[in-house]
Nucleic acid binder design. Structure first.
Length: 917
RNA sequence: GGGCGGCUAGCUCAGUUGGUUAGAGCGCCUGCCUUACAAGCAGGAUGUCGGGGGUUCGAGUCCCUCGCUGCCCACCA
């Protein structure tokens, strides 16, 4: 027998072995070119791994996400679903480029020095290294993904999908190119989308500047936070109804420092309350001004370049950095007495999400997606309930954003990414957009064409993943079988970046695509996933957000090495209440390491019993034994089987609602509380091979062993999605390395069987447990030696006496009772415990600690009295009786009846001990 | 400027549609090496559910308000 398990569980000794086994055996791979009829015959559970960026290592948030997806995937797989979890990594354009630039900087090099081609080659090297490391970590964590379908957002099939998507959108007129105000990062040297700008409140200044009126004495005073951009002013705007400025409509102003003349225009966007009510208009450097410029037909003057230095149009200020220029402008205005005032002003300043450089709104030629048509479908998909969010509140956030969406700037002036499939013609200046690299300009036939240098926003390719990971734009069997994916699990931080984009792109491209049966997909089947589960943020033990700068980042691999993967997974699951951030606390993990050890030792115990049974020649093959308890089976067997089924029901329900914490806690308390603490202790009674004077070749022993094994095996299966390693190891040992399947992960998940839920047995067991606990407590109070057995006096209703007698061996063993004497009334003065259903006293020579007992009784009495007065009040309230559900009323009546019995007993005990003297 | 969440035992957190006595882990106190497990066993103590008001027969749970505290979104210079 290979069951010579070490006394303490050592995760390190088994985890690598199983992690490798699962991958090598391809246990979680689905056949390619899947038979779609079989896919339709089975429920499908398909899920996409949110691709980790190839920027570094996995962090705790990844581990939470992967644990949650893995639990669900393993669960669905064991429930008989065709489960497919596709893994992959993201090239993460700007983020990865930044990492490599930093690496270069350490070598005192820049990407410009390397040149585009060499630089991109260098990033590929980085990707090889870090991408592989991330996937290794995933294997280490036991994620049950389909490695045969692994993707990278810049590999061949995904690049083809990106090109197809771009070209189609272009052909549909949904992509345009033009000069607009964009968010420009002067450090990254690229445009970024609105989402990549993070706003931070900052204490700044609001300057008031006088613009002289041409041909008159006097000024218009404008207020601005960006004085340096005044060099690009093309107008001053006032509200049309603002009487203060009515006389100036149509007049010209002389722009200070430049002498240029600019008009006063009216625009109802201007707020009369803010500043002076007159606003300088700088279309090239402010999004609002740009919009106004368009409305008013004003020109744009760019005075700042891509590095946020003033350009030639800034005249004397050319070459100055924007902040330097600001100082100089202010000083010059001051000198000319044109600075009317300055005051403190708090405003939000935009910074680059990646490098934290202050973003500059710049006029720049970029590619955009006309987003409204896509957004319309995306809104409808959620409104119609084709996509559901959990927690539900996120759908509100989603709508909020989607209904106020702006066109998406998809071009980036980066080198790492999907290069836009557009070619500029040097001859005719027109653009050719094509799926395959063209030889000549499609407009004039010239061969002087050059591909667009810009690359696409990284989210363009990841936004296509639900389709592209299944083979789109090809019409593949995978797409037929697994699209829409069933679920997306991700963090709220990429709700707009990624989730929203996937919904828009998925709905757009999959609508009207053929399904497996040849019919066209409607919106319902075009969505990229049917449900979105938004998980929490993992914080440190002090609820602080983990960040490199704070130095509080927990490396999952390190924690895993200390406590074992299963313990960390279980910690995350047990703390993952939907909608609540997780304060990751290692104390908790230590507790679950102990849980793993508990499971391990339960297995050791069971293996010992099996060996003994084999040695005694009781059974040849334990696994052949029937598992269901007979009607005359002992209480503990009927009880544990009932508890198992109830537990299975609760876990299945909880997992179906993404209530990981509830599932984990239910499992924990079942295994430790019910199975180990009670059931195993009682079962020892049935399996007492040594004590039996006669040969133990008896049916009861076989029956006990059968239940023990069956319940334990079921518990392991319940456990396996949460703790795949230890459950796999023990399961194989249980079957002596000849298990009925290659992995416990391929067995069936236990489902609740109503016919095995035995409420009567549960109630009886609860009463028995109550009695045992009462006796144990009295023993402690009386100071009975741990090993001594003592007689008890017991008073129960005659009807229950038989139950107690039947289970007297359980009581004797677990409460160390030598004999039970049934009495009709308790003797005076003895330490008596009263509970609903029984009074019990321990017979022992020592007397109890009267003071302590009085205190206990008084506390209990106070609690009872409060409770009965509550109960009486409610029961005499007609509204309650009329409106409360019958079971609630009935429950309260029963409790009141119990209290009516218990309270006098309590008082009598207090009297007999003279507690009140 | 809009919107969302949190406040429950010493600590970290559960508590689904309002329903009988508000729970867990860790920590704490007491006693045990009981031959699966001392990473264990048995027993115990601990809460005016942030304050106030309201709805209801009944509120930790729903509504209003106040306080503290996070977070997201936002083109008022």
């Amino acid at each position: 027998m290979p069951r010579d398990l070490p006394k303490a569980y050592d995760p390190a000794a088994i985890e690598d072995r199983w992690a490798a086994y699962w991958v090598e055996e391809g246990l979680f791979d689905q056949p390619h070119a899947a038979d779609t009829t079989s896919a339709r015959a089975h429920p499908v559970f398909s899920v996409l791994l949110p691709p980790p960026n190839v920027t570094g290592r996995l962090h705790m948030g990844h581990m939470l996400e992967h644990t949650e997806i893995d639990i669900l995937t393993r669960w669905h797989r064991m429930c008989g679903n065709l489960a497919l979890w596709i893994p992959g990594t993201d090239h993460a354009g700007i983020a990865t480029q930044l990492m490599v630039e930093r690496q270069l900087a350490e070598e005192h090099k820049t990407r410009q020095q390397l040149g585009r081609e060499a630089f991109v080659e260098r990033v590929w090297q980085w990707k090889q290294h870090y991408g592989a490391a991330i996937l290794d970590q995933m294997r280490r964590l036991g994620t049950s993904v389909d490695w045969s379908r692994e993707y990278f957002t810049m590999d061949g099939p995904r690049s083809a999908a990106v090109r197809e998507a771009f070209v189609r959108l272009y052909e549909q007129g949904l992509i345009y190119r033009g000069a607009y105000i964009v968010n420009w990062c002067p450090r990254c040297q690229t445009a970024i989308s609105d989402l990549e700008v993070i706003h931070e409140e900052q204490q700044g200044k609001l300057w008031e500047i006088r613009y002289p009126i041409v041909g008159e004495n006097g000024f218009v005073t404008v207020a601005t936070t960006r004085p340096e951009t005044m060099l690009g002013d093309v107008a001053v705007a006032v509200h049309p109804d603002d009487e203060r400025y009515a006389h100036l409509h149509g007049k010209m102003l002389r722009l200070p420092l430049t002498g240029r003349e600019i008009p006063v225009v009216t625009d109802s966007w201007v707020s009369r309350e803010f500043g002076t009510g007159a606003v300088k208009v700088t279309p090239a450097h402010d999004p609002n001004d740009f919009a106004m410029g368009q409305r008013q037909g004003l020109p744009s003057i760019s005075v700042m370049g891509e590095t946020a230095h003033m350009n030639a149009a800034a005249g004397a200020y050319a070459g100055l950095d924007r902040y330097k220029a600001r100082q100089r402008v202010l000083a010059d205005l001051e000198a000319q007495n044109l600075l009317a005032g300055v005051r403190d002003h708090v405003h939000a300043i935009g910074k680059c999400d990646r490098c934290k450089t202050v973003v500059e709104p710049l006029l720049s030629t970029q590619w955009f997606i006309r987003i409204q048509p896509l957004a319309d479908h995306a809104i409808a998909a959620v409104e119609q309930g084709y996509i559901r969010f959990t927690p539900e509140q996120y759908s509100k956030t989603y709508f909020e954003w989607m209904r106020n969406i702006h066109d998406w700037c998809i071009s980036r002036q980066l080198w790492w990414g999907h290069r836009i499939p557009a070619w500029h013609c040097a001859a005719c200046g027109k653009i050719t957009v094509a799926r395959t690299t063209p030889e000549v300009c499609s407009h004039c036939g010239s061969n002087r064409i050059e591909q667009e240098k810009d690359v696409l926003d990284t989210w363009f390719s990841s936004g296509l993943l639900p389709c592209s990971s299944l083979g789109w734009p090809e019409h593949t069997p995978d797409l037929d079988a697994f699209y829409p994916t069933r679920l997306l699990v991700t963090g709220f931080d990429i709700l707009f970046f990624w989730v929203a984009r996937m919904i828009m792109l998925g709905c757009h491209f999959m609508l009207d695509e053929p399904m497996a049966d040849g019919s066209k997909r409607t919106l319902q089947d075009a969505v990229p996933f049917r449900e979105v589960y938004i998980h929490a943020l993992v914080r440190d033990a002090d609820r602080q957000k983990m960040s490199k700068t704070k130095g509080n980042v927990i490396d999952p691999i390190q924690v895993v090495e200390r406590f074992g993967t299963d313990a960390v997974r279980f910690t995350l699951a047990a703390m993952a209440a939907p909608g609540t951030d997780i304060a990751f606390n290692e104390d908790r993990t230590d507790g679950y390491r102990a849980f793993a050890n508990k499971i391990w030792n339960a297995a050791r115990f069971i293996f010992m019993q099996m060996e003994r049974a084999a040695d005694a020649g009781i059974v040849s093959d334990l696994h052949q034994l029937g598992a269901e308890p007979e009607n005359d089976a002992p209480l503990e067997a009927r009880w544990i089987v009932s508890r198992l089924n109830r537990t299975a029901g609760e876990i299945n329900q909880a997992l179906g609602e993404y209530r990981f914490h509830e599932a984990a806690n239910t499992l924990y308390s079942f295994f430790w509380g019910d199975f180990c603490d009670w059931y195993l202790e009682v079962v020892k009674l049935r399996l007492d091979f040594t004590a039996a004077p006669t040969p133990v070749r008896s049916a009861p022993v076989r029956s006990a062993l059968a239940t023990l094994l069956s319940v334990f095996e079921s518990a392991l299966r319940l456990l396996s999605p949460f703790m795949p390693f230890i459950s796999e190891e023990i399961w194989h040992a249980l079957y002596e390395n000849h298990p009925p399947a290659r992995s416990i992960a391929l067995t069936r998940y236990p489902q609740a069987r109503e016919d095995l839920v035995d409420s009567a047995a549960e109630q009886q067991m609860e009463r028995t447990q109550g009695l045992i606990v009462a006796v144990r407590d009295m023993r402690r109070q009386l100071g009975v030696e741990e090993k001594a057995t003592v007689p008890i006096l017991l008073r129960v209703a005659p009807a229950e006496r038989r139950d107690i007698e039947q289970n007297s061996d359980i009581i004797s063993r677990l409460a160390k009772v030598s004999s039970i004497e049934f009495v009709d009334s308790m003797p005076e003065g003895a330490g008596v415990r009263s509970a609903p259903g029984f009074d019990v006293a321990v017979v022992y020579e020592r007397t109890i600690d009267v003071a302590a007992e009085c205190e206990r009784l008084k506390k209990e009495l106070a609690r009872f009295e409060k409770e009965i007065s509550n109960a009486d009040r409610q029961l005499s309230n007609e509204g309650f009786l009329a409106k409360a559900p019958a079971n609630v009323v009935e429950g309260l009546r029963r409790r009141a009846a119990e209290l009516t019995v218990l309270i006098p007993k309590n008082r009598a005990a207090l009297d007999s001990l003279n507690c009140n003297q």
